[in-house]
């Protein structure tokens, strides 16, 4: 895994908390002792091109995706469709990644993010992958940092 500054975990947890609070008025809790598992999931990934070479992923179960999307859009959950969920998830990930990179880097160093992409295969803990489980509204979602090939 690419060397990350020592404060990367704190930076990621803060970025997730701020993003959910500002965009969805929700407060996820970092839950490192819990494990994410879901039968049907929404997943999204975003490449971080520079200066780190990695990919950030978010994955959550379908029901939580609908709850978050309905909150962000101020709509009834029943009126939320899959495209809205995926778009909301992508925007959440994009914002989290930006806040994470800003927190990690010196003020005079710019960074470059890719465009969010739908992914069905999110990594689990292991070589080249660091996972960060969060609890929210009685459910779970997971952020992962995946090492990119050099």
């Amino acid at each position: 895994m690419t060397d990350l500054p020592g404060n990367y975990q704190e930076a990621l947890v803060t970025a997730v908390a701020e993003t959910f609070e500002n965009l969805a008025f929700m407060e996820p809790e970092y839950s490192p002792d819990k494990e994410f598992a879901a039968a049907v999931t929404y997943g999204c990934s975003l490449a971080i091109h520079a200066p780190l070479q990695s990919t950030m992923q978010i994955v959550m179960d379908e029901e939580l995706g609908k709850v978050i999307t309905s909150t962000v859009w101020s709509r009834q959950k029943e009126s939320v469709d899959e495209q809205m969920c995926r778009d909301t998830l992508a925007e959440l990930l994009n914002t989290i990644a930006g806040r994470f990179m800003k927190a990690l880097l010196p003020a005079d160093q710019t960074f470059q993010l890719g465009l969010p992409e739908v992914t069905e295969n999110c990594c689990s803990s292991g070589t080249g992958c660091r996972v960060f489980p969060f609890s929210l509204s009685g459910s779970m979602f997971q952020i992962a940092l995946v090492e990119s090939a050099a």
Partner: peptide, 12 residues
């Protein structure tokens, strides 16, 4: 309005 905001980028 960007997720890629930081002081150096903002100045650019």
């Amino acid at each position: 309005v960007t997720s890629g905001s930081n002081p150096a980028k903002n100045e650019e």
